[in-house]
């Protein structure tokens, strides 16, 4: 990872952080409805892994904490914010919401709201890639608590059995909503659980993007070379509650303080400042620029976009004018 890459990643992660913080404000202002799951604290996971992959080409799927993964794949942040506002210009035309961001053009195959739901979907995409003979891979980002679903075990078994090109990334933020991992999970170290299926795995620091990138390079190479699935456990932390309806009262201030010292953005920023590659003022200027962009471009776009038409309530339930519904060529 060269200096230019690091600078770019610093900017991308900061943008993601500010985007999510602005979502928080918009939610408080009741511009955004429903459930909202925010990403601050975990940025090095999505950006570090995708830096080693091919964003926009490899197929990415995740759970409901999905805005930032979509952005990294190439989705337009304006369309995502418009989606959160429920507008027709939103990425899912206002039909999906925060938990269902999609950008199929950039191979971001969706955010899904059933914990563990994407595990088999990712394996299925990998099956299709393998059958077509492409060298793309499927990447599935989920949290640690999803690993207690049956789909985790069923999917790992099939992915290993059929040597499917899928990378499972476990963003272990230590909590399943409000229940700490050691209170829900017999084996706390998630990377150990996949050894039951003969899948290679690593547990690494999910806060240091350079560490994540390096581990992801190895994992992506393994998967892309046709050797079957790989599992990465990234130790990370979310700063906010599980969703906006979570009071976050179950964590100690000491614990939060400890993790805040390992902030992925601050760590990379300080490293670049120490190396003399940027100054504090450069960083501040960049931050201001990002905040202006979010306000002037993104929020303004979401605010001014039209609502979906009620007459189109039933659009997208079924395929339109599918000839086979009428028996095709008969």
């Amino acid at each position: 990872m060269n200096v230019a890459d690091k600078k770019r990643l610093l900017r991308e992660m900061l943008f993601a952080r500010r985007f999510e913080e602005r979502c928080y404000e918009a939610y408080v202002e009741r511009k955004i409805g429903g459930f909202l799951h925010l990403y601050p604290g975990q940025e090095a996971c999505a950006f570090g892994v995708m830096e080693a992959a091919r964003p926009g080409r490899d197929y990415v799927i995740t759970g409901y904490r999905d805005h930032v993964h979509a952005i990294r794949c190439g989705a337009d942040p304006k369309a995502i914010m418009a989606e959160l506002y429920g507008k027709e210009t939103g990425s899912s035309r206002g039909r999906g919401g925060s938990m269902h961001i999609f950008d199929v053009e950039h191979h971001f195959m969706g955010g899904y709201a059933l914990v563990g739901g994407p595990f088999p979907l990712a394996a299925g995409m990998a099956k299709a890639i393998k059958m077509k003979g492409d060298d793309d891979i499927a990447i599935c980002f989920l949290g640690d608590a999803a690993n207690n679903q049956g789909t985790f075990h069923e999917s790992l078994n099939m992915a290993a059995l059929w040597e499917l090109p899928v990378l499972y990334v476990c963003e272990n933020n230590l909590y399943g909503i409000g229940t700490r991992i050691d209170r829900s999970t017999a084996v706390v170290e998630q990377y150990k659980r996949v050894s039951a299926y003969g899948i290679p795995s690593d547990q690494i620091d999910g806060q240091d993007i350079e560490v994540v990138f390096k581990a992801a390079q190895k994992a992506v190479k393994h998967v892309r070379s046709g050797k079957g699935p790989y599992f990465l456990e990234l130790l990370t932390y979310r700063y906010r509650g599980h969703s906006m309806s979570d009071s976050n009262a179950y964590r100690s201030k000491d614990e939060e303080k400890m993790w805040s010292k390992r902030d992925p953005i601050i760590m990379l920023r300080d490293r670049l400042i120490e190396a003399g590659e940027i100054t504090k003022d450069d960083y501040k200027a960049m931050d201001t620029e990002i905040l202006d962009q979010i306000e002037d471009d993104i929020i303004a776009y979401a605010e001014s976009s039209p609502e979906p038409k009620v007459e189109e309530l039933e659009k997208y339930v079924l395929a339109e004018n599918d000839p086979w519904v009428r028996g095709g060529k008969n």
């Binding site: 394996a123 995409m125 299709a128 890639i129 059958m131 049956g150 069923e154």
Partner: peptide, 12 residues
Amino acid sequence: GYTGLGIGASFL
């Protein structure tokens, strides 16, 4: 699991 796998394959 396999129903989900089939669905994921159909996405592509």
